[in-house]
Amino acid sequence: MKAARFVAQALLYVPLMVILGYFSTQPRFTDIAHGQALVRLSFSHAGARKVECRQRTPEELAKLPPNMRAAMDCPRERSPVKVEIEMDGRVIFAADVPPAGFTKDGASTIYRRLPVAAGKHRFVARLRDRPEGEFNYVHEESLDLAPGRAVVIDFNAAQGGFLFKG
């Protein structure tokens, strides 16, 4: 009876062991298809103020408490950042990235994964951080992307605009 119980217990432990071990490693996982590369667009950039600063008139200043009489009136809200990624003449991503914060005065931040076919490609990255007008940052780059390669398109205005990394 004891031996039979022992065998029965072993028979119940084995499937648990198999299930535990199998799902601990299998099935294998690939986050993008074979033969593809990945473009990762990511930046954190504050757009220009939505409304330009302006000089307060003497009448307006007089109405304010003495400790709040700042000469310039600068509304805090910032403009969304418009971004566009073109690959081989075709726009593969476009977005108006809103500013962060309840009063919309923070930086516009984005992270997007753009899987693309491996091979040679010509990329054009465009960005506008003003409320209106044309893209004020444009960068072109040709890349030969091997399968599995990950390229980052970052943006830093202080360093001249778009940065292709990786």
Partner: peptide
């Protein structure tokens, strides 16, 4: 289970590359 199927790592991380097919702990 540990002896029959020792835990293994995938290839070292490389943020400039995609990790490829991964052994994956679905739990």
């Amino acid at each position: 289970l540990s002896l029959a199927l020792p835990a293994e790592s995938n290839a070292p991380a490389d943020l400039s590359r995609l990790p490829g097919a991964l052994t994956f702990d679905w739990w």
